[in-house]
Design a protein around this nucleic acid. Structure first.
Lengths: 214, 214
DNA sequence: TTCTGTGAACAGATTCACAGCA
DNA sequence: TGCTGTGAATCTGTTCACAGAA
Protein backbone atom coordinates (compact mmCIF):
# COMPACT_ATOMS: atom_id res chain seq x y z
CA UNK A 1 0.00 0.00 0.00
CA UNK A 2 2.56 2.53 1.04
CA UNK A 3 4.13 4.21 -1.93
CA UNK A 4 6.77 5.50 0.45
CA UNK A 5 9.01 2.68 -0.80
CA UNK A 6 11.20 5.18 -2.63
CA UNK A 7 14.85 5.98 -2.42
CA UNK A 8 16.21 6.17 1.13
CA UNK A 9 15.37 9.41 2.90
CA UNK A 10 18.42 11.15 4.42
CA UNK A 11 18.54 11.04 8.23
CA UNK A 12 18.68 14.82 8.44
CA UNK A 13 15.40 14.98 6.56
CA UNK A 14 13.79 12.29 8.71
CA UNK A 15 14.75 14.32 11.78
CA UNK A 16 12.74 17.25 10.43
CA UNK A 17 9.67 15.29 9.33
CA UNK A 18 8.01 15.31 12.76
CA UNK A 19 8.28 19.10 12.88
CA UNK A 20 6.84 19.47 9.38
CA UNK A 21 4.08 17.06 10.28
CA UNK A 22 3.19 19.01 13.40
CA UNK A 23 3.14 22.31 11.51
CA UNK A 24 0.99 20.73 8.81
CA UNK A 25 -1.49 19.45 11.37
CA UNK A 26 -1.69 22.92 12.90
CA UNK A 27 -2.33 24.33 9.44
CA UNK A 28 -5.03 21.73 8.76
CA UNK A 29 -6.69 22.58 12.09
CA UNK A 30 -6.69 26.21 11.02
CA UNK A 31 -8.50 25.24 7.83
CA UNK A 32 -5.55 25.80 5.54
CA UNK A 33 -5.65 23.52 2.47
CA UNK A 34 -2.41 24.41 0.78
CA UNK A 35 0.94 25.56 2.13
CA UNK A 36 4.04 27.05 0.49
CA UNK A 37 7.60 26.10 1.40
CA UNK A 38 8.17 29.54 2.88
CA UNK A 39 5.28 29.21 5.30
CA UNK A 40 6.37 25.75 6.41
CA UNK A 41 9.90 27.04 6.79
CA UNK A 42 8.75 29.82 9.09
CA UNK A 43 6.79 27.42 11.26
CA UNK A 44 9.68 25.02 11.63
CA UNK A 45 12.61 27.42 11.68
CA UNK A 46 14.54 26.42 8.55
CA UNK A 47 15.10 27.90 5.09
CA UNK A 48 12.51 27.43 2.36
CA UNK A 49 15.20 25.75 0.22
CA UNK A 50 15.61 23.18 2.93
CA UNK A 51 11.89 22.48 3.03
CA UNK A 52 11.71 21.94 -0.73
CA UNK A 53 14.78 19.70 -0.72
CA UNK A 54 13.32 17.68 2.13
CA UNK A 55 9.90 17.35 0.52
CA UNK A 56 11.50 16.37 -2.78
CA UNK A 57 12.26 13.01 -1.16
CA UNK A 58 8.52 12.37 -0.79
CA UNK A 59 6.07 11.22 -3.43
CA UNK A 60 3.79 14.22 -2.90
CA UNK A 61 4.60 17.01 -5.35
CA UNK A 62 3.78 20.64 -4.87
CA UNK A 63 2.17 22.82 -7.50
CA UNK A 64 4.18 25.79 -8.73
CA UNK A 65 2.79 29.12 -7.82
CA UNK A 66 0.63 27.51 -5.15
CA UNK A 67 2.40 25.16 -2.75
CA UNK A 68 1.79 21.72 -1.29
CA UNK A 69 -1.47 20.01 -0.43
CA UNK A 70 -1.65 19.94 3.35
CA UNK A 71 -3.70 16.77 3.69
CA UNK A 72 -1.54 14.84 1.22
CA UNK A 73 1.62 15.79 3.09
CA UNK A 74 0.12 14.81 6.43
CA UNK A 75 -0.89 11.44 5.04
CA UNK A 76 2.48 10.76 3.49
CA UNK A 77 4.65 11.94 6.38
CA UNK A 78 2.51 9.90 8.74
CA UNK A 79 2.99 6.81 6.60
CA UNK A 80 6.73 7.34 6.34
CA UNK A 81 7.04 7.77 10.08
CA UNK A 82 4.96 4.64 10.61
CA UNK A 83 2.20 6.58 12.32
CA UNK A 84 -0.62 5.43 10.07
CA UNK A 85 -1.01 2.56 12.47
CA UNK A 86 -0.80 2.70 16.24
CA UNK A 87 2.64 2.44 17.82
CA UNK A 88 2.86 0.65 21.14
CA UNK A 89 5.25 1.90 23.80
CA UNK A 90 6.55 0.10 26.88
CA UNK A 91 8.15 2.16 29.61
CA UNK A 92 10.65 0.81 32.13
CA UNK A 93 11.33 2.84 35.25
CA UNK A 94 8.64 4.33 37.48
CA UNK A 95 10.70 6.97 39.25
CA UNK A 96 10.17 10.69 38.89
CA UNK A 97 10.98 10.79 35.20
CA UNK A 98 9.08 7.59 34.43
CA UNK A 99 5.98 8.94 36.10
CA UNK A 100 6.21 12.21 34.24
CA UNK A 101 6.58 10.35 30.95
CA UNK A 102 3.64 8.09 31.78
CA UNK A 103 1.52 11.16 32.38
CA UNK A 104 2.71 12.82 29.19
CA UNK A 105 -0.31 13.88 27.15
CA UNK A 106 1.62 13.96 23.88
CA UNK A 107 1.63 10.20 23.31
CA UNK A 108 -1.88 9.59 22.07
CA UNK A 109 -2.29 12.54 19.67
CA UNK A 110 0.75 11.38 17.69
CA UNK A 111 -0.40 7.79 17.47
CA UNK A 112 1.55 6.31 20.37
CA UNK A 113 -0.09 4.17 23.03
CA UNK A 114 1.65 3.53 26.33
CA UNK A 115 0.80 -0.10 26.98
CA UNK A 116 2.74 -0.86 30.15
CA UNK A 117 5.00 0.55 32.85
CA UNK A 118 7.53 -1.81 34.42
CA UNK A 119 9.95 -1.53 37.32
CA UNK A 120 12.06 -3.78 39.53
CA UNK A 121 11.24 -2.09 42.83
CA UNK A 122 8.84 -4.26 44.83
CA UNK A 123 7.56 -1.11 46.52
CA UNK A 124 6.07 0.26 43.31
CA UNK A 125 5.16 -2.96 41.46
CA UNK A 126 1.42 -3.39 41.76
CA UNK A 127 0.71 0.30 42.35
CA UNK A 128 -1.19 2.28 39.75
CA UNK A 129 0.06 5.04 37.53
CA UNK A 130 -2.81 6.62 35.66
CA UNK A 131 -4.81 3.79 34.13
CA UNK A 132 -1.93 1.32 34.27
CA UNK A 133 -0.73 -1.01 37.00
CA UNK A 134 3.05 -1.17 37.30
CA UNK A 135 4.34 -4.66 36.55
CA UNK A 136 7.68 -6.27 37.28
CA UNK A 137 10.48 -6.01 34.73
CA UNK A 138 10.51 -9.82 34.52
CA UNK A 139 7.21 -9.67 32.64
CA UNK A 140 8.78 -7.66 29.81
CA UNK A 141 8.91 -10.52 27.25
CA UNK A 142 5.28 -11.39 27.95
CA UNK A 143 4.18 -7.78 27.71
CA UNK A 144 6.06 -7.14 24.48
CA UNK A 145 4.50 -10.22 22.87
CA UNK A 146 1.00 -9.62 24.19
CA UNK A 147 0.88 -5.92 23.30
CA UNK A 148 2.96 -6.25 20.13
CA UNK A 149 5.12 -3.42 21.46
CA UNK A 150 7.24 -1.39 19.05
CA UNK A 151 9.24 0.99 21.18
CA UNK A 152 10.90 0.69 24.59
CA UNK A 153 11.54 3.71 26.78
CA UNK A 154 14.27 3.51 29.42
CA UNK A 155 13.82 5.80 32.42
CA UNK A 156 15.99 4.06 35.01
CA UNK A 157 19.20 5.29 36.69
CA UNK A 158 22.41 5.03 34.65
CA UNK A 159 23.85 1.89 36.23
CA UNK A 160 20.66 -0.09 35.58
CA UNK A 161 20.17 1.10 32.01
CA UNK A 162 22.29 -1.40 30.11
CA UNK A 163 20.60 -4.40 31.71
CA UNK A 164 17.20 -2.96 30.84
CA UNK A 165 18.25 -2.33 27.24
CA UNK A 166 19.60 -5.88 26.97
CA UNK A 167 16.30 -7.19 28.30
CA UNK A 168 14.39 -5.10 25.76
CA UNK A 169 16.50 -6.40 22.90
CA UNK A 170 16.05 -9.96 24.13
CA UNK A 171 12.31 -9.38 24.32
CA UNK A 172 12.28 -8.37 20.68
CA UNK A 173 12.14 -4.59 20.81
CA UNK A 174 14.06 -2.97 17.97
CA UNK A 175 13.63 0.71 18.81
CA UNK A 176 14.64 2.16 22.16
CA UNK A 177 14.54 5.62 23.68
CA UNK A 178 17.14 5.92 26.43
CA UNK A 179 16.93 8.65 29.06
CA UNK A 180 19.83 7.28 31.09
CA UNK A 181 23.14 9.10 30.70
CA UNK A 182 25.05 6.09 29.42
CA UNK A 183 26.00 4.76 26.00
CA UNK A 184 24.57 1.31 25.37
CA UNK A 185 25.84 -1.23 22.86
CA UNK A 186 23.15 -3.02 20.88
CA UNK A 187 23.16 -5.53 17.98
CA UNK A 188 22.70 -4.44 14.38
CA UNK A 189 19.10 -3.76 13.52
CA UNK A 190 18.33 -2.22 16.89
CA UNK A 191 18.26 1.56 17.08
CA UNK A 192 18.74 3.51 20.27
CA UNK A 193 18.20 7.23 20.67
CA UNK A 194 19.47 8.93 23.77
CA UNK A 195 17.92 11.95 25.42
CA UNK A 196 19.99 13.42 28.19
CA UNK A 197 19.07 16.53 30.14
CA UNK A 198 22.56 16.93 31.51
CA UNK A 199 24.16 16.88 28.05
CA UNK A 200 21.72 19.52 26.84
CA UNK A 201 22.41 21.77 29.81
CA UNK A 202 26.15 21.41 29.31
CA UNK A 203 25.88 22.38 25.65
CA UNK A 204 23.89 25.44 26.68
CA UNK A 205 26.48 26.24 29.30
CA UNK A 206 29.12 26.14 26.57
CA UNK A 207 27.21 28.66 24.48
CA UNK A 208 26.78 30.80 27.58
CA UNK A 209 30.53 31.20 28.09
CA UNK A 210 31.55 31.12 24.45
CA UNK A 211 29.15 32.26 21.75
CA UNK A 212 28.38 35.57 23.43
CA UNK A 213 30.75 38.40 22.68
CA UNK A 214 31.14 40.02 26.00
CA UNK B 1 42.95 32.22 33.45
CA UNK B 2 41.41 29.85 30.95
CA UNK B 3 43.77 28.75 28.23
CA UNK B 4 40.73 27.37 26.46
CA UNK B 5 40.74 30.58 24.42
CA UNK B 6 41.88 28.65 21.34
CA UNK B 7 40.43 28.32 17.89
CA UNK B 8 36.67 27.77 17.82
CA UNK B 9 35.63 24.22 18.69
CA UNK B 10 33.31 22.67 16.07
CA UNK B 11 29.72 22.21 17.25
CA UNK B 12 29.86 18.47 16.59
CA UNK B 13 32.79 18.22 18.97
CA UNK B 14 31.08 20.33 21.63
CA UNK B 15 28.11 17.98 21.44
CA UNK B 16 30.36 15.07 22.39
CA UNK B 17 32.30 16.80 25.17
CA UNK B 18 29.70 16.06 27.87
CA UNK B 19 29.89 12.34 27.04
CA UNK B 20 33.69 12.36 27.13
CA UNK B 21 33.60 14.24 30.39
CA UNK B 22 31.24 11.74 31.95
CA UNK B 23 33.35 8.79 30.81
CA UNK B 24 36.46 10.51 32.15
CA UNK B 25 34.82 11.08 35.54
CA UNK B 26 33.84 7.42 35.65
CA UNK B 27 37.43 6.50 34.84
CA UNK B 28 38.76 8.83 37.53
CA UNK B 29 36.36 7.29 40.05
CA UNK B 30 37.72 3.88 39.12
CA UNK B 31 41.23 5.11 39.86
CA UNK B 32 42.35 5.27 36.25
CA UNK B 33 44.99 7.98 35.68
CA UNK B 34 45.48 7.73 31.95
CA UNK B 35 43.17 6.78 29.11
CA UNK B 36 43.75 5.94 25.42
CA UNK B 37 41.53 7.16 22.61
CA UNK B 38 40.30 3.62 22.03
CA UNK B 39 39.06 3.23 25.58
CA UNK B 40 37.28 6.58 25.52
CA UNK B 41 35.80 5.69 22.15
CA UNK B 42 34.37 2.45 23.55
CA UNK B 43 32.82 4.25 26.49
CA UNK B 44 31.19 6.89 24.35
CA UNK B 45 30.34 4.87 21.25
CA UNK B 46 32.42 6.59 18.57
CA UNK B 47 35.57 5.73 16.61
CA UNK B 48 39.00 6.30 18.17
CA UNK B 49 39.84 8.58 15.22
CA UNK B 50 36.93 10.76 16.20
CA UNK B 51 38.10 10.98 19.79
CA UNK B 52 41.59 12.07 18.77
CA UNK B 53 40.25 14.63 16.31
CA UNK B 54 37.93 16.01 18.98
CA UNK B 55 40.61 16.15 21.65
CA UNK B 56 43.00 17.81 19.20
CA UNK B 57 40.88 20.95 19.61
CA UNK B 58 41.80 21.08 23.30
CA UNK B 59 45.02 22.31 24.87
CA UNK B 60 45.66 19.02 26.65
CA UNK B 61 47.94 16.77 24.60
CA UNK B 62 48.15 13.01 24.92
CA UNK B 63 51.41 11.10 25.15
CA UNK B 64 52.12 8.61 22.39
CA UNK B 65 52.09 5.01 23.41
CA UNK B 66 50.24 5.95 26.60
CA UNK B 67 47.13 8.10 26.17
CA UNK B 68 45.66 11.18 27.80
CA UNK B 69 45.84 12.34 31.40
CA UNK B 70 42.38 11.82 32.86
CA UNK B 71 42.48 14.64 35.39
CA UNK B 72 43.79 17.16 32.88
CA UNK B 73 41.01 16.31 30.43
CA UNK B 74 38.35 16.58 33.11
CA UNK B 75 39.66 19.98 34.13
CA UNK B 76 39.83 21.30 30.59
CA UNK B 77 36.48 19.93 29.36
CA UNK B 78 34.84 21.32 32.49
CA UNK B 79 36.34 24.75 31.83
CA UNK B 80 35.30 24.71 28.18
CA UNK B 81 31.76 23.74 29.09
CA UNK B 82 31.68 26.49 31.70
CA UNK B 83 31.28 24.00 34.53
CA UNK B 84 34.24 25.14 36.56
CA UNK B 85 31.83 27.56 38.16
CA UNK B 86 28.27 26.90 39.23
CA UNK B 87 25.55 27.28 36.62
CA UNK B 88 22.21 28.55 37.82
CA UNK B 89 19.00 27.18 36.29
CA UNK B 90 15.49 28.61 36.42
CA UNK B 91 12.60 26.31 35.54
CA UNK B 92 9.24 27.53 34.30
CA UNK B 93 6.33 25.10 34.39
CA UNK B 94 5.39 23.00 37.40
CA UNK B 95 3.30 20.36 35.70
CA UNK B 96 4.24 16.70 35.46
CA UNK B 97 7.37 17.28 33.45
CA UNK B 98 8.42 20.33 35.45
CA UNK B 99 8.13 18.41 38.69
CA UNK B 100 10.12 15.52 37.33
CA UNK B 101 12.83 17.89 36.16
CA UNK B 102 12.87 19.66 39.52
CA UNK B 103 13.39 16.32 41.21
CA UNK B 104 16.13 15.31 38.77
CA UNK B 105 19.22 14.26 40.71
CA UNK B 106 21.57 14.90 37.81
CA UNK B 107 21.68 18.69 38.18
CA UNK B 108 24.02 19.09 41.12
CA UNK B 109 26.73 16.54 40.22
CA UNK B 110 27.33 18.32 36.91
CA UNK B 111 27.54 21.75 38.48
CA UNK B 112 24.00 22.97 37.86
CA UNK B 113 21.89 24.47 40.61
CA UNK B 114 18.14 24.79 40.23
CA UNK B 115 17.44 28.16 41.81
CA UNK B 116 13.72 28.60 41.22
CA UNK B 117 10.56 27.05 39.82
CA UNK B 118 7.93 29.39 38.38
CA UNK B 119 4.41 28.92 37.07
CA UNK B 120 1.36 31.00 36.22
CA UNK B 121 -1.21 28.72 37.81
CA UNK B 122 -2.46 30.26 41.06
CA UNK B 123 -3.23 26.78 42.33
CA UNK B 124 0.44 25.78 42.41
CA UNK B 125 2.13 29.12 43.14
CA UNK B 126 3.14 29.08 46.76
CA UNK B 127 3.27 25.30 47.05
CA UNK B 128 6.57 23.58 47.61
CA UNK B 129 8.49 21.36 45.24
CA UNK B 130 11.40 19.78 47.03
CA UNK B 131 13.23 22.57 48.83
CA UNK B 132 11.80 25.30 46.60
CA UNK B 133 8.59 27.28 46.76
CA UNK B 134 6.93 27.80 43.40
CA UNK B 135 6.80 31.49 42.50
CA UNK B 136 4.74 33.33 39.91
CA UNK B 137 6.13 33.78 36.41
CA UNK B 138 5.90 37.56 36.92
CA UNK B 139 8.84 37.36 39.30
CA UNK B 140 11.12 36.00 36.58
CA UNK B 141 13.14 39.21 36.05
CA UNK B 142 13.69 39.57 39.79
CA UNK B 143 14.69 35.93 40.16
CA UNK B 144 17.09 36.02 37.21
CA UNK B 145 18.81 39.12 38.61
CA UNK B 146 18.91 37.95 42.21
CA UNK B 147 20.17 34.43 41.42
CA UNK B 148 22.33 35.50 38.47
CA UNK B 149 20.65 32.75 36.48
CA UNK B 150 22.35 31.37 33.36
CA UNK B 151 19.90 28.93 31.85
CA UNK B 152 16.13 28.86 31.52
CA UNK B 153 14.19 25.62 31.19
CA UNK B 154 10.74 25.70 29.59
CA UNK B 155 8.37 22.93 30.67
CA UNK B 156 5.02 24.45 29.80
CA UNK B 157 2.44 23.37 27.19
CA UNK B 158 3.15 24.28 23.58
CA UNK B 159 0.83 27.27 23.27
CA UNK B 160 2.36 28.97 26.33
CA UNK B 161 5.97 28.31 25.38
CA UNK B 162 6.69 31.28 23.17
CA UNK B 163 5.49 33.79 25.76
CA UNK B 164 7.66 32.15 28.38
CA UNK B 165 10.69 32.21 26.08
CA UNK B 166 10.07 35.88 25.31
CA UNK B 167 9.88 36.60 29.04
CA UNK B 168 13.13 34.73 29.60
CA UNK B 169 14.90 36.70 26.88
CA UNK B 170 13.53 39.96 28.28
CA UNK B 171 14.75 38.95 31.74
CA UNK B 172 18.25 38.53 30.34
CA UNK B 173 18.60 34.77 29.93
CA UNK B 174 20.72 33.85 26.91
CA UNK B 175 20.50 30.04 27.03
CA UNK B 176 17.19 28.21 27.00
CA UNK B 177 16.22 24.57 27.05
CA UNK B 178 12.76 24.13 25.54
CA UNK B 179 10.72 21.00 26.18
CA UNK B 180 7.63 22.34 24.41
CA UNK B 181 6.99 20.98 20.91
CA UNK B 182 7.15 24.36 19.19
CA UNK B 183 9.81 26.32 17.35
CA UNK B 184 10.57 29.63 19.00
CA UNK B 185 12.14 32.65 17.39
CA UNK B 186 14.75 34.44 19.48
CA UNK B 187 17.14 37.36 18.89
CA UNK B 188 20.78 36.81 17.93
CA UNK B 189 22.93 35.89 20.87
CA UNK B 190 20.26 33.74 22.47
CA UNK B 191 20.54 30.01 22.00
CA UNK B 192 17.61 27.64 22.33
CA UNK B 193 17.86 23.89 22.39
CA UNK B 194 14.70 21.85 22.00
CA UNK B 195 14.08 18.45 23.52
CA UNK B 196 10.90 16.80 22.32
CA UNK B 197 9.78 13.36 23.35
CA UNK B 198 7.31 13.12 20.52
CA UNK B 199 9.92 13.87 17.86
CA UNK B 200 12.23 11.22 19.28
CA UNK B 201 9.46 8.62 19.31
CA UNK B 202 8.57 9.44 15.72
CA UNK B 203 12.15 9.04 14.57
CA UNK B 204 12.27 5.67 16.29
CA UNK B 205 9.01 4.74 14.66
CA UNK B 206 10.58 5.56 11.30
CA UNK B 207 13.48 3.22 11.95
CA UNK B 208 11.03 0.56 13.08
CA UNK B 209 9.26 0.49 9.69
CA UNK B 210 12.24 1.29 7.53
CA UNK B 211 15.74 0.37 8.65
CA UNK B 212 14.81 -3.23 9.33
CA UNK B 213 14.90 -5.49 6.30
CA UNK B 214 11.75 -7.38 6.63
C1' DT C 1 4.33 36.31 -11.51
C1' DT C 2 4.77 32.94 -7.92
C1' DC C 3 6.54 29.05 -6.10
C1' DT C 4 8.41 24.27 -7.09
C1' DG C 5 12.18 21.13 -8.22
C1' DT C 6 16.95 20.22 -8.82
C1' DG C 7 21.77 20.49 -10.37
C1' DA C 8 25.89 22.88 -8.81
C1' DA C 9 28.68 25.06 -5.40
C1' DC C 10 29.86 25.13 -0.79
C1' DA C 11 30.55 23.90 4.10
C1' DG C 12 31.09 20.78 7.72
C1' DA C 13 31.99 16.39 9.67
C1' DT C 14 33.84 11.75 9.50
C1' DT C 15 37.02 8.36 8.15
C1' DC C 16 41.38 7.05 6.26
C1' DA C 17 46.26 6.80 6.13
C1' DC C 18 50.40 7.49 7.94
C1' DA C 19 54.31 10.06 9.95
C1' DG C 20 56.50 10.43 14.45
C1' DC C 21 57.35 10.32 19.43
C1' DA C 22 57.49 7.64 24.01
C1' DT D 1 55.51 -1.50 19.35
C1' DG D 2 51.54 1.45 20.83
C1' DC D 3 49.18 5.32 20.48
C1' DT D 4 48.92 10.34 19.24
C1' DG D 5 48.30 14.05 15.89
C1' DT D 6 47.01 15.60 11.43
C1' DG D 7 46.67 16.24 6.36
C1' DA D 8 43.97 14.12 2.62
C1' DA D 9 39.99 11.92 0.91
C1' DT D 10 35.28 11.05 1.41
C1' DC D 11 30.78 11.63 2.69
C1' DT D 12 26.70 14.22 4.17
C1' DG D 13 24.12 18.15 4.47
C1' DT D 14 23.06 23.03 3.34
C1' DT D 15 22.72 26.93 0.45
C1' DC D 16 22.69 28.95 -4.05
C1' DA D 17 20.96 29.75 -8.58
C1' DC D 18 17.89 29.15 -11.94
C1' DA D 19 14.88 26.68 -15.29
C1' DG D 20 10.04 25.72 -15.76
C1' DA D 21 5.10 24.67 -14.69
C1' DA D 22 0.63 26.71 -12.99
Amino acid sequence: MSDSARRPIPPATVARLPAYRRALMDAADAGVRTVASGALADAVGVHPDQVRKDLSHLATRGTRGVGYDVRALITETSAILGLDEERVVVLVGAGNLGRALAAYEGFAPQGFRLAAVLDVDAAVVGTRIGALTIAHLDTLPTVVRRERADVGVVAVPGPAAHDVVDAMVAAGLRAILNFAPVHVRVPDGVVVRRVDLSTELQMLSFHRTNGARG
